[in-house]
Nucleic acid binder design. Structure first.
Lengths: 201, 201
DNA sequence: GTTTAATGTTAACTGAGTTAAGTATCGACC
DNA sequence: GGTCGATACTTAACTCAGTTAACATTAAAC
């Protein structure tokens, strides 16, 4: 029944855009008093997970250059969201640490997302949720299996999904910070064309 | 059962990123011999739907400036994917028309997406698909209802889902080209920070 | 026939990325 | 202990896709 396949595929794609684009953007806008780019937000999110992160770690994780991270940290530091802290052992390295104001934005983001999620989840019975979860997991794993570039930071779980995460490459960040090398080779945060900057209109 | 809610929400978000980001990017890269930005691809996609489109229509639809559209059309015209055609009635206006090479890219994109989709759909029984469709539609409508900025071009259906489209504001484009004014107020294609440009590494 | 509005292009600018060069520190080796 | 290469970060110059503002050209209104 090709038509069902078609409709379902389309609706899955629409859902993806709605969640990954519209919902994320609006939540971030609500959560933060200042405009943050997607990458700046991702940096905060990474810093909120366990482990120490330096400029080059962040560059590797977000797959952008050290120079770009450095500039983003300038911006975030200027907003008092993060700070550079020289490492005791090695005076070349800097640990980037998340400050209270940065945490506040993340907490607010999670709170808003949590609220939206709560309302959404109220729609479904437990049976339906379990059903949907199973189907969603299968969509994810199957879709990723078809792709070459499957490394990414999902970070949707706040770094605590551990071994239950469906994303193989995520597990490193979620539960094993020491494995943080070379995640997300290709879910690039490349030079910008369109969607993810703060709205300036 | 808060934990199920949490897990399900996370997995929905992960699925969204996987589909909207990774899958779209890789498909576009496979489909097009030249690097197209997300907006350039969206322009092609819009042009492939029914109706005549001028610079200002496209600007309104993508929510970027006339000047930006003009430059994008320069680029697409230089690649022989589209052409400017002076309108008989009004010599100020230009109809932007999709050329064969442009259509070829769209066809190839759809073909690849169709293939991926076919494999994915093989995973599910008809019962499961109907189930999933229902749940997905509810996620979409509910999520959109919570958002203020719900205007968007989804264009996932290729412009032919008509009244069955779950996206109210989409219907204009899918089935009623004359309503093409002011779709997508805010699913911005704003100045760029991060993800959607062709990969230059 | 002149003024006003609409359409599209050009020019100057912005912001977030890039690469390449520069600075400082560390570790190793003679 | 001094030099040399590697590592970590920053700075500078550039690119690219947006922006706004000024400018042609054409159409419409009075």
């Amino acid at each position: 029944m090709g038509n069902l396949d078609q409709t379902l595929s389309e609706n899955i794609r629409i859902m993806a855009v709605v969640i990954a684009d519209i919902c994320h953007r609006s939540t971030l806008q609500m959560a933060s008093p200042v405009n943050l780019t997607r990458n700046q937000f991702t940096i905060l999110k990474v810093l909120s997970t366990e482990g120490d992160f330096q400029i080059s770690d962040l560059a590797r994780l977000l797959d952008i250059s050290n120079a770009a991270i450095s500039k983003n940290i300038d911006r975030l530091a200027q907003l008092d969201l993060v700070a550079r802290q020289t490492k005791p052992g090695d005076r070349r390295s800097l640990d980037i640490i998340l400050l209270e104001d940065g945490m506040k934005i993340l907490r607010e983001f999670d709170r808003i997302l949590g609220e939206k999620q709560e309302h959404l989840m109220d729609q479904f019975s437990i049976q339906e949720k379990e059903n949907l979860l199973d189907l969603v997991k299968r969509v994810i794993t199957f879709t990723l299996a078809e792709e070459q570039d499957t490394e990414l930071i999902c970070l949707q779980c706040g770094g605590n999904c551990g071994d239950t995460c469906v994303i193989d490459s995520c597990k490193g960040l979620c539960s094993l910070p020491e494995k943080k090398i070379s995640l997300r080779q290709s879910v690039g945060a490349k030079q910008g064309s369109s969607d993810w900057s703060p709205d300036k209109k």
